[in-house]
Design a protein around this nucleic acid. Sequence first.
DNA 1: CACTAATTTTCACAAATTTTTCACTGCCTT
DNA 2: AAGGCAGTGAAAAATTTGTGAAAATTAGTG
Lengths: 225, 225
Amino acid sequence: MYKVLIVDDEAKIREVIAEYAEFEGFEPDQAADGMEAVAKCKQNDYDIVLMDVMMPKLDGFSAVKEIRKVKDVPVIMLSARGEEYDKLFGFEIGADDYVVKPFSPKEVMARINAILKRNCNSKNQKNTNQSLKFDGLEIDMLGRNVYVDGQKAELTPKEYELLFYMVNNKGIALSREKLLSDVWGYDFYGDDRTVDTHIKMLRSNLKDYRKFIITLRGMGYKFET
Amino acid sequence: MYKVLIVDDEAKIREVIAEYAEFEGFEPDQAADGMEAVAKCKQNDYDIVLMDVMMPKLDGFSAVKEIRKVKDVPVIMLSARGEEYDKLFGFEIGADDYVVKPFSPKEVMARINAILKRNCNSKNQKNTNQSLKFDGLEIDMLGRNVYVDGQKAELTPKEYELLFYMVNNKGIALSREKLLSDVWGYDFYGDDRTVDTHIKMLRSNLKDYRKFIITLRGMGYKFET
DNA sequence: CACTAATTTTCACAAATTTTTCACTGCCTT
DNA sequence: AAGGCAGTGAAAAATTTGTGAAAATTAGTG
């Protein structure tokens, strides 16, 4: 059964959608703001997230960005604001669809089904191997664990996020700026060498598999097997 | 490069979208009705299809149904009718997205990008893998690798940048000044012979394919196959 | 709320690598 | 044959990365 997380600050809206979702055979869960959504996503594995844009504490866009750091779950953005700017921004940070309020629950359900259907091939593959394995380096996306030759590696959060991002961009050259903006956040004001230090720690934790983290002199780094 | 098929009976609309698509780096093709769209899809491999619903000869829904029998290409439906019924119907027959006219070309492009990004793991990998091949010289732009007869060439950053720039200006005569200002930066204060030295190193690393780097006496260099 | 532990960030320095300079050689062109 | 221009090798200069340690930040706890 597919699990759906519904994020909106209005309880009424959450209820309506949840009811429909349940009727359609989904297992709905709710969050009232971006912070809660991020927390829930880190704990649970949802098959899709419906995310309102305008919310207290943490807005929908920022929440998606935060969630995407650790989970690759499809997201549909809900917004009362139908302006083009928002739409584009939503897609850019990787929303899979965008629905403008007021929407009909039926339409939302149809869009959920469309996305789940589309992702079913890759999703199923991903579900069966939610963990990636490169030689003796295993990354368990679900449990957020990394194993080096079967032994659990104790990575700090940043180290894990960095590895996760690099693995998801396997074979692609990543500049320090790109890494800082995607892993640390677009609003990070800091030293380039910060990346180096984390790469150092990551390498040291990956033991022999440090070999997968390639230095591209004058450029940045990349993960390559 | 991604190939997009634009299906609409109004030439004007096709033109506008095609223009935008080209600007965005897609390779647009057009069809004026459902029949033509089906025929073209059977012949060619498109990465995505934009399909109008209301068309003479064969309507959009039927066309998609027909296309899906032979090809599993993503489809975005375009429709002047924004009624919910159509939307649901569109998703049911497997449309990947649904845009209601009048739409802004920008929004359509954003949706195309969203879908292509999502599907990139399947067949389009070679498309995303921006790699150029000239004889036995292969340049993998994404991974920043250069292969000479399948063997990885260890280029220094400047060597890579120089090669990258020259390849992107294939067949064009490049003066030392132009190279210095474009590859090194407009603020570079230095000797002209610097270019020569890097060309030397690059040639030596490209082995037999040094032949692509042509000296233009009294002028500069160019890359030509 | 202060204290502790863990994590993240900054930073300076050494080591490694790359870039630049430059003198010299030799080839092309007129 | 001479003058100009490109090719080359090697040394010097500059840049970049790896790393350790200290400082700053964050989270957890009594």
